[in-house]
Design a protein around this nucleic acid. Structure first.
Lengths: 232, 232
DNA sequence: TCGACTTTGTGCATAGCTTCACAAAGGCAC
DNA sequence: GTGCCTTTGTGAAGCTATGCACAAAGTCGA
């Protein structure tokens, strides 16, 4: 009865591998553009910023697509990874929340080129509704369910303020969506079977600050006590 | 001679733990705002979306800040986590690339409230230079080194197009910066001792698409062969 | 003061991920 | 063909992270 939702154990492709496949795909696309026909695991690993043994093991989870003594056919590998990731089909994506971040996402070219078609932009602010962004007219958030159903949206991007995120989340799940990309700084509560991925702009900075502090101090501040004057 | 740069083994705090501390901090801040004085590992874990044993083990790496039978003092724990992450000091951050994403970052309230002060906005486009965003005037990218040195910038956010990212990266490293948050879809090459964290808007969508495909098909497409008509 | 109750901190077992190192497999020159 | 060279794919080992389960440590009422 235990169903681990965000895991990729279906056919045994480890999550860590799935997370790196888009990286390999990007490196391969760059090579294809430059006309490279085949590539060794060593070179591809270098371009993707990983170690070559890891790359080979990752690819081996998809199948045996290399040729010993030669390497991997760039075009063929692009196809295989794309297929595995589900990028050979078209995904209709709706973006909820059209602030600066929503606009940045709507205009980001990296989506369309990978099979992600933006099928709707929605916002609750009447001042934003009706704006034309990236070729789409912003619709009112009230239309959320209807947009999802009519346009076959299967992935929803939440780029709303934190306060609205859970409500939007509940509604899109009720409308049948099971894949959500959340940019709002909240932990969304979702039922089993729904995948949520989270991108948090400030968490990354905080992790950097941690390392930067360590570099600067050569160790943590040793005063572990509560400083004077702070009320407990 | 092997120096693992992006690792946090300085005082033995695992990377996985460091990555979750900001999450706990956010949950704690919410509780503090609602006036909660103490919290159990169970409740805090619930709010942060992790399991309580993991939370306790994470916190135990920082020290023994809980009280058995009671829980954790919210204010005290906020202080300890903040200190460990280096958020009790002020960090000067420069954002390079003021497109939609750069603007979203500049306007994002989550930075200022955590000790990250935006000390500079830079762009290479003369049409953008001079714009006033979030209280700052956008400066020309030529000023990069001077802004970094004069304002004590220690963390740089790269929000430029992919083509400019490596060049910007090289320049900020030459100017002494060792912590970089990269939003451009490229793998940056950096020397030892420089931390790069990467946020990739399209990789997350691709991972979602993978899981969504698995849900839809109940397994991978079984045609593993190269489709007819595609040139190898 | 004492005993019942709560909750932390952690030893241990397990699962997952990374890396090494090498046999197996294919290409290529002659 | 044959033998050498390159590069893949993978077993095995080591490392990191997770989660259980419980002793230790504290609170609180009587």
């Amino acid at each position: 009865m235990i169903r681990r939702i965000p895991q990729a154990r279906d056919r045994g492709i480890p999550d860590a591998t799935v997370a790196r496949l888009p990286l390999y795909l990007r490196a391969l696309n760059g090579m294809a553009e430059r006309g490279t026909a085949t590539v060794s695991s060593e070179d591809l690993a270098l371009a993707a910023g990983v170690n070559s043994a890891k790359l080979r093991k990752d690819l081996s989870h998809l199948g045996s697509y290399g040729t010993r003594g030669v390497g991997y056919d760039v075009q063929y590998l692009i196809y295989q990874i794309s297929r595995e990731l589900g990028l050979t089909q078209d995904w209709a994506v709706a973006i909820v929340g059209v602030g600066n971040l929503g606009r940045a996402l709507a205009n980001y070219g990296g989506f369309a080129s990978r099979g992600f078609r933006i099928a709707g932009l929605l916002d609750a602010d009447p001042h934003v509704v009706g704006d034309r962004i990236a070729g789409l007219v912003v619709e009112h958030a009230d239309e959320l369910e209807s947009v999802i159903r009519k346009r076959g949206v299967s992935i929803v991007v939440i780029a709303t303020p934190a306060t609205a995120a859970q409500q939007v989340c509940d509604r899109v799940i009720a409308a049948g969506v099971t894949s959500i990309l959340n940019f709002a700084p909240v932990v969304l509560a979702v039922p089993d079977g729904v995948d949520v991925r989270k991108v948090d702009l400030s968490i990354e900075l905080q992790i950097l600050a941690f390392h930067e502090q360590r570099k600067a101090n050569g160790g943590p501040i040793m005063a572990e006590e509560w400083p004077d004057g702070v009320v407990m």
